Amino acid sequence: MKPVSFGSACHQEATLQKKNHQCPSFKPAKDQFTLLLGGNAAAGCKLKPMMVHHAENPRALKGIVKSTLPVIWKANKKGWVTASLFEDSFSHYFVPEVKKYCEDKSIPFQVILLVDHAAVIHPLFNITTLFLPPNTTSILQPMDQGVIATFKALYLLDAIKITAYAWNKISETTMKRVWKKLCPQLFGTNVERFEEPAEIVQQNTEAIVTLANILDLDVSATDINYLLEAHKEELTN
């Protein structure tokens, strides 16, 4: 009987850093994370991604129950997939997911796992782990044959769409209000009453909290305000 073949690949994302002399006001972000992606040859089982961050409880996830995230959240100081994290993912997530997939499809639980990093995995019945030779990931690893590239393109596309959406939601009233605050002489004495940006932020904060409550997430207005103010602080590693 044909075994179920899976490919698993680590992909590290790091923020783009520019030299200070190129952009004096630019503060390089030292944040980074690693994604562990995997799926089978039949394309019917996409494993839940594992995201490894350098912080166990980053500011953006304050108050969020990690088990409710759409990824497996892990952390270590360097934000890397270590051997222990890989083995934990293998035992507690990979095996149960694949076993359930095989049961749902009524196929034997016989699996070949292709891994591009020689992590230590305890032998498990019906799962054969094949480690790719050094420097062959780009050639032999299935996830590197277009899956990761497509993922990054979609990720970037969504980030661009969200950026454009948020920018387009900034109204003329908000723009005029901030300019009036800085250069009141441009508007004269007879000016309309502009809606305070703080009012808009408050309205959207309340909307976010309401949505979070509907999704059963523990998010408060304080958490949102804390996140909005975070950009004013010095970035750390």
Rank of each mutant, 00 (worst) to 15 (best):
D104R: 14
N225R: 12
F6D: 01
Q185H: 11
L47G: 01
F33E: 08
L124T: 08
L157P: 02
S220G: 12
P28T: 11
E56V: 13
P108R: 13
N57I: 05
D223T: 12
N76T: 05
I127S: 01
E234Q: 03
T129Y: 01
A207H: 11
M50P: 11
F33G: 10
L182V: 05
Q203M: 07
H11L: 08
T137D: 06
G188F: 07
N135Y: 08
K232E: 10
L69Q: 00
A221K: 04
A221W: 12
K77Q: 04
L114N: 00
Q17P: 11
L217E: 01
G7A: 10
Q202C: 11
K2S: 05
L228S: 00
A118Y: 05
F26A: 09
E234H: 03
S106F: 10
I200C: 06
E229Y: 06
T174M: 08
L140I: 14
P142R: 06
H11S: 15
D88G: 03
C183H: 12
I107V: 09
I214Y: 14
E97S: 00
M50L: 14
M51I: 15
D116K: 03
L132Y: 02
V71D: 03
A83D: 13
W73A: 04
K19F: 15
C23F: 10
A55E: 15
D116S: 00
T15L: 13
K48W: 00
K27T: 12
A9W: 09
W179S: 09
E13R: 01
A14C: 13
A119I: 12
K30R: 03
F131T: 00
L61E: 07
A43W: 03
P96L: 07
T236W: 01
P58E: 04
M1P: 13
F125S: 12
P3I: 06
S138E: 10
I162N: 14
L182H: 11
C102E: 01
H21W: 13
M50G: 10
I121N: 02
I139K: 00
W179L: 08
T210Q: 10
H54A: 01
Y226L: 00
P184R: 02
L132V: 09
H117S: 02
L215K: 00
L157N: 10
N126C: 09
C10T: 14
S84W: 13
V120W: 13
L228M: 08
P133F: 06
A212M: 10
P108E: 02
K232V: 04
F194C: 05
A29V: 04
H54G: 00
K99H: 13
T68C: 12
A118D: 11
F109A: 05
P70G: 15
K78S: 15
I224E: 11
L124Q: 01
L211S: 00
C10G: 13
R193L: 07
A164C: 12
T136R: 07
K62L: 02
M51G: 09
C23R: 05
F151R: 05
G146D: 08
A43F: 12
T15K: 06
I208H: 04
W167P: 04
H231T: 05
Q12T: 01
A164H: 09
K105L: 01
P134S: 14
K152P: 13
T137P: 10
G146W: 00
E103Y: 06
E172T: 12
V81G: 01
Q17L: 04
F6C: 11
S138D: 08
F151W: 08
T34H: 03
I148Y: 11
